[in-house]
Design a binder for these strands. Structure first.
Lengths: 251, 251
DNA sequence: GCTTGACATTAACGCTGCGTTAAGGTTTAT
DNA sequence: ATAAACCTTAACGCAGCGTTAATGTCAAGC
């Protein structure tokens, strides 16, 4: 049984364009080309197409599908497991997005029309959350999961007054950092004050403060673009400046 | 305070290419262009960029962001709600994908090396599931939710014997359809037998069989490409053929 | 005053998986 | 013979930039 491109497309429920594309990329070549240049597909190609459609339905990328079907000894289970991990990662990202969108919607609803300043506050808050999340991850690798748990626990148990103090410290760090940058010297008194405020702020998250850990965090402020973006709000190069100040402070 | 493209990029944690792209698309134009053709951004642009980054973090598309920030009376809550619905839809799709991938992985593991036939069986089963799902949706619109519930209930309460019968009917429909197509006439006896088998099969899903509903379903078999793909496995044009046979059968 | 390096510019392709014209040959049916 | 239905290649478009490539500008140091 032989099929032209359209007939095969109808059988599989896909377009002729798709089949031509599969031919072009080498994913599924026709059995032969007839004298008029038409693509002719045979039974083998139908089977292959069914396999392709199967993996496609699972959301596997065409390049991976190609590997799976072109080499029978390819470890398709491993490929599927990698694919699964990727899908799960995507779902987690989506969950976070959805949660944030919902937060924003209810905040907007609650505050009638949220002004720009409020928007930014929300943004900042989210950034901090993200930062802490990512930071938690890196710390986990460096200092173990307990440190992270302890940190989260500490945060959750804050009293409203402590929370106030935490927020105030955060603003003070930024403000002092800004002033210090106008001086331009990380070893300057103002810059060192910023570093000290930063230590105080940090103490809300960490139980056993050490200079080494503080210095390590400062380095991350520069290498991680999300941290960097947060501090660079003060001005370009603010993250680097803060890092240098902290490195001096912790020396 | 004025910024060059690089400085602004550093503050926001994004690339200069991105900023040029935003300029190009009109999402964020610089405050002015200096005599050397450099883009110069001011405080207003920083604020706007912060808003852009905020919505971007929520996964909102750039075109939507443009609408939101360019017209202050734009209903951003409605836009966010639409966005939320889309995200949730995507998550549902992902959930389905993940479930299917997991099913496939465990099937492959269990059956050592799954052969092609088995793969196809799994594929077919999934297709049928999908079809029923979609079919349920369309029916819901046409005949109400009760019909769907009744259908699902009926399916779940099938005894193993009944399930056997259902599977057998399914195969018989396909087989008879294939034979009938060789005849080529939808009004032919064999084709009408296929239509009758299809009615029997359908009776496992529907309680109150009516000719009209049967005919309506037949029409969907052609207009919905997923149904079409299922039946067209028998051969090109099989869905149309079955529809015609059913239309005659129900007349 | 000249070089160097860091910055700036526009232009244009690349990525994914096809949809969608466009411009034209082939086959089939009437 | 002519129309309808099919086939072909070629090439843009989509989202959101990353990434060269080729070239101009500016501040700093010799």
């Amino acid at each position: 049984m032989e099929y032209t491109i359209k007939k095969l497309g109808q059988m599989a429920g896909i377009s002729t364009r798709t089949l031509r594309y599969y031919d072009e990329t080498g994913l599924l070549k026709p059995a032969r080309i007839n004298t008029s240049g038409y693509r002719i597909y045979g039974a083998r190609e139908v089977d292959t197409l069914q396999q392709i459609m199967f993996y496609r339905e699972l959301g596997v990328g065409l390049s991976t599908i190609k590997e799976i079907i072109s080499s029978p000894d390819f470890d398709s289970v491993a490929a599927l497991e990698a694919h699964r991990r990727e899908l799960i990662g995507r779902r987690e990202t989506l969950d976070t997005l959805i949660a944030n969108v919902e937060k924003t919607i209810s905040a907007k609803r609650g505050g009638k029309t949220m002004n720009d300043r409020e928007k930014f506050e929300g943004f900042k808050q989210k950034l901090i959350d993200d930062n802490n999340k990512k930071y938690g991850k890196e710390i986990r690798e460096k200092y173990g999961a307990e440190a992270v748990k302890a940190s989260e626990k500490k945060l959750k148990s804050l009293t409203p007054e402590q929370y106030e103090r935490l927020s105030a410290l955060e603003k003070e760090v930024l403000k002092t950092l800004k002033t210090a940058m106008e001086e331009g010297d990380p070893s300057d008194e103002t810059a060192q004050k910023a570093a000290d405020l930063h230590r105080q702020w940090l103490s809300f998250y960490w139980d056993g403060y050490t200079k080494e850990a503080h210095a390590g965090l400062a380095q991350m402020y520069v290498s991680d673009e999300r941290f960097a973006a947060y501090y660079n709000r003060v001005g370009p190069g603010a993250a680097e400046f803060l890092r240098d100040a902290i490195l001096i402070y912790t020396k």
